[in-house]
């Protein structure tokens, strides 16, 4: 059974130098309270795996703005100019990865697969420079890139409704990477906007099963 922890306790699982997955799309689905606590604690040298960096000052971008990230594995950084600035200053390494490839790399990391075989990125800088490209393969006459799986020390996700067994239901577009990342880290922490009794989510409507979730933070609706 997952354990209920305070936002302070949850943030303490993230230590200097760790690789952390953060669910969300331009902030929608980011666990905002846990991120705020990480900023407060000032944990350093993080490798963040996330779909994007939201606009400056919002969601996980606060960690970048506060110079707590040394490496970012992501698909889009256009809305936070601090990323380019820190990249140019040699402070931040950014591995731009196609969004669909990144989603599957997380899934592979969580699902015990050795990699992802995709046509996306062929003939581009991704093929030339992305460190997660393992090589190329031809199957039935068609060329593909082989992308390595990713795994994290901690995954931070958010859920609209979470029951006491850790089952998660996501609302709207906040599911995005959260349900994938819940499978791909040693420790999974879910910030719940609403906590309900076990059984409060119908079994058919559970998206992330409680077996994936280690800790729940009762975040209260933002």
């Amino acid at each position: 059974m997952p354990k209920f922890v305070s936002v302070e306790e949850a943030a303490a699982y993230v230590k200097d130098g760790m690789t952390v997955m953060i669910g969300g799309f331009l902030g929608c689905g980011n666990p905002h309270h846990i991120i705020d606590e990480l900023v407060k604690r000032g944990v350093q040298d993080l490798t963040i795996i996330s779909n994007d960096s939201p606009p400056t000052g919002y969601g996980l971008s606060k960690l970048i703005d506060n110079h707590q990230v040394k490496r970012l594995i992501t698909s889009h950084v256009g809305l936070n100019p601090n990323v380019a600035e820190q990249m140019n200053a040699g402070e931040l390494e950014v591995n731009l990865t196609p969004q669909g490839s990144l989603a599957e790399m997380v899934r592979a990391g969580g699902g015990g697969l050795g990699g992802v075989i995709t046509p996306t990125g062929l003939g581009t800088l991704v093929e030339e420079q992305n460190p997660f490209v393992h090589g190329k393969i031809t199957i039935d006459g068609r060329e593909y890139l082989v992308m390595k799986p990713v795994h994290a020390d901690v995954a931070l996700i958010s859920g609209h409704t979470v029951d006491k067994a850790g089952n998660v239901w996501y609302k709207g577009t906040s599911r995005n990477f959260c349900s994938l990342m819940a499978t791909a880290a040693d420790v999974v922490i879910c910030e719940a906007d609403h906590v309900v009794e076990t059984g409060g989510i119908e079994p058919e409507n559970v998206v992330t099963q409680g077996i994936f979730v280690d800790y729940i933070v009762d975040g209260g609706k933002l």
Partner: peptide, 15 residues
């Protein structure tokens, strides 16, 4: 000059 990233564009134009 500018490096916003590919987001989902690479997958979209391939798929």
């Amino acid at each position: 000059k500018k490096c916003p990233g590919m987001g989902g564009a690479m997958d979209l134009v391939v798929g």
